[in-house]
């Protein structure tokens, strides 16, 4: 498990969202005033039920959507002054469905597509491609067509193709949907490594187990608003809020709640922690 780092205000902001409102087609209100600072090195999970505005918020961060009102700034520059392609150099966005991004006849070609679009010189493109393929564990399949791979591998290709653009921030939209437990663990390990290497990771998900295990900071969204912004422990301490936001806390957090009368703290994140609290005698009160 990654050690939880206390948040400090002086870490510089890489994305800052101010009073962001967003309305689709002039009538469907998706975001109703969002304030959020993503700091360099954050491992942030944006959670919320379907239709809570997670993806809309993320698309506002990389310029695919422009604020109806309010502002989004990346490295201090407003997104409305930058093209999506310019923003792609800073913010890599892997879509929920990898099949929406893959079209080349080999994995290597696919990974090359992004940096070529951004106009990097050839030698650099080759280097970035090589590195990303290796980091995502795709070296053995790099000459195969992406569509011949399994879903887990295709996800890796789509993340590698974002990584090759060398962004500072990775936005990953539901990266584990449809993967089995083993594939999920492998993929999340690679994502953890991105964060350890100094990248900022924004994980969009409604899988609270992932959040408990990997994220360092959680933003809960409901009906276009941020209803909570804290470390994972703080989120799981408020069961009511999670349920109202159409989220199910992981079993271990639910168990900790049931055991709170025994003195177990409510913000338990892992079975190990729970065992620790029960064994340490704090929960031994009869």
């Amino acid at each position: 498990m990654i050690p939880r780092v206390p948040m400090s205000a002086d870490q510089d902001k890489i994305i800052s969202v101010h009073e962001l409102k967003f309305v689709y087609d002039g009538s469907v209100r998706a975001l109703a005033g969002i304030n959020l600072d993503v700091r360099r090195g954050d491992y942030l999970a944006i959670v919320g039920g379907n239709g809570s505005g997670k993806t809309t918020l993320a698309k506002n961060m990389n310029g695919l959507l422009r604020p109806t009102s309010g502002s989004v700034a990346v490295n201090g520059v407003s997104t409305s002054e930058q093209t999506v392609a310019e923003l792609a150099k800073v913010i890599g966005y892997a879509f929920q469905n990898p099949d929406h991004q893959l079209f080349c006849s080999s994995v290597a070609e696919e990974v090359r597509f992004g940096p070529l679009n951004l106009g990097y010189p050839e030698a650099e493109v080759a280097k970035k491609t090589e590195l990303s393929i290796e980091a995502m564990g795709l070296s053995s399949v790099k000459d195969l067509p992406p569509f011949s791979l399994t879903l887990g591998e295709r996800r890796r290709v789509s993340i590698a193709s974002v990584m090759a653009m060398d962004p500072q921030v990775f936005i990953l939209d539901e990266p584990t949907t449809g993967l089995d437990a083993r594939e999920t663990d492998d993929l999340m390990d690679s994502i953890d490594r991105l964060n350890i290497d100094g990248h900022t990771v924004v994980l969009i998900t409604h899988d609270m187990k992932l959040v408990a295990k990997h994220a360092k900071r959680v933003v809960v969204m409901s009906e276009g608003r941020i209803v909570l912004d804290s470390d994972p422990g703080g989120v799981f301490a408020d069961l009511e809020l999670l349920l109202r936001s159409k989220l199910v806390p992981p079993p271990v957090a639910q168990l900790a709640h049931r055991l709170s009368s025994l003195g177990v703290p409510r913000e338990v994140l892992s079975p190990e922690e729970l065992v620790f609290h029960l064994m340490s005698g704090r929960g031994a009160r009869k």
């Binding site: 890599g92 879509f95 992004g114 974002v162």
Partner: peptide, 30 residues
């Protein structure tokens, strides 16, 4: 899909005839 490819730096309707055609292929294949 158009959005997904734009997030990878694709700029549709920019550049010469050949480049534009290639860019549309990147949207149409998926």
């Amino acid at each position: 899909i158009k959005e997904a490819q734009r997030a990878r730096g694709l700029e549709l309707d920019k550049g010469n005839f050949r480049k534009r055609a290639k860019d549309y292929v990147a949207v149409l294949v998926p």
